[in-house]
Nucleic acid binder design. Structure first.
Lengths: 233, 233
DNA sequence: TGCGCCCTTTGACACAGATCAAAGTCGGCC
DNA sequence: GGCCGACTTTGATCTGTGTCAAAGGGCGCA
């Protein structure tokens, strides 16, 4: 909390601009800010490990954070990759349980850590805030369900296509192009999609060979949205 | 709501006994009951399909309900199998989204359907209830994460073992036995564990051959808890 | 300009688990 | 008691994806 004193105003502003806190009064945001600490995370550093107790949640100010599960023998499965404005750890905060994932900074990052008790207090006398919190958790559940669906009913190729089309318009004329910048290294992305780097590489190659996309490093161009969407391996 | 009139008292009693509603006052439970409908679901019937709008959530009074995702060509993936006292659909209720899974009764069942507006009203003036709701969703997220972890970093055999040991004591002397009754047909259970019936059958056979379990229909006896826990394929 | 490091691609091969097909097995119901 | 349909097992084979190994890039840094 000491670090916060350096830029006391900005924390309030940042919090107020988050959808989750947007409708709180100035006083309420002030109370939250008083329970908030700024956290600096250099690339590669861990914010917490599986098993650590959870006494609050994080919001990313800038940078990029990876949440992942660690398996035996150093294998890991990336659960989510998050960027500025996104938060994580709310769910564990409401259970009296330790973290199940670990969090690692993929690039130099800055976060706010908001203490559990301040959130619980806010819920106590602000039902609208409680509803937003509920909607937030529900949204997360929804996303997890989508992942589960993708992992169990779709092939690796289909998951990659799904990722490439994640925020493409629903309908699109034949031949519509789309430029995409992969959010992270291909290795991390592959793990996020539950496939190996090698397999991911081969899938990208296969889609290129089919004339559906062009790949240059992290930059991918979808050459025909409609055709990619209906591609069958 | 008409059907409710047949047994007006019992609904209140049942609701009050659920952990979620246990600390509500009589008046509060009454209001909830007024927004509650009894639903009868014969074995094999659908409660809702993917895409249906969600205007409340369900609690099982008796029977057994399966939540599942439908893939192309009739393939399906069982997400959860629920029994008496368990609820489902809370998450979608808080989002303005349609169901993503469908719900089917595995046996003749009876449920309560609690209207969304009554829940929202309760949250509005009862922060402790809001917290319980949050804890409920967080718990669900936690479970889903466990499934995700199992699906992505464990083998089919390990998932089956995990299921058999789901509520076995943490520590146990060598040679401890455990009697288990499978909750559903092996086909449904296999899908829940994300493997095919055939593969599930073979895994059970393999564990039997290794002298770790004995299988008689739906009745499974673990012959040595400790040894099963540390079994490596 | 070139060295070193990390990320990525490519190839050959192995394997868990799926699929297809057919034979059991069990319990309910007339 | 015996037949039917649903569930389960078993066998043979196929295949998507992982693993292991080695060769390429690309890019910051000296």
């Amino acid at each position: 909390m000491a670090a916060m004193a350096a830029t006391p105003i900005r924390v309030q502003q940042f919090l107020q601009n988050l959808p989750l806190f947007s409708e709180l009064t100035g006083d309420e945001v002030d109370r939250l800010a008083a329970a908030t600490a700024q956290v600096r995370a250099p690339a590669g550093s861990l914010l917490f490990r599986r098993g650590d107790p959870c006494i609050g949640f994080h919001v990313i100010v800038y940078g990029q954070i990876k949440l992942a599960l660690a398996g035996r023998d150093g294998a890991e499965k990336v659960v989510e990759v998050l960027g500025p404005g996104q938060s994580f750890g709310e769910a564990v905060m409401f259970l009296e349980r330790p973290y199940v994932v670990f969090a690692e900074a993929l690039s130099d990052s800055m976060l706010l850590f908001i203490g559990k008790s301040a959130i619980l207090a806010e819920i106590e006398h602000n039902p609208r805030f409680a509803r937003k919190m509920l909607a937030g958790l529900a949204m997360r559940l929804h996303r997890l369900m989508s992942d589960l669906e993708a992992y169990s009913l779709k092939s690796g190729t289909q998951r990659v296509i799904g990722y490439l089309l994640r925020d493409a318009p629903e309908e699109s004329a034949a031949g519509t192009r789309l430029a995409i910048e992969l959010a992270t290294s291909k290795g991390v992305l592959a793990s996020r999609l539950n496939i190996t780097r090698e397999h991911f590489s081969r899938i990208l190659h296969e889609l290129s060979a089919a004339g559906l996309i062009e790949v240059h490093g992290r930059h991918v161009t979808v050459l025909d949205l409609a055709r990619l969407r209906s591609y069958t391996p």
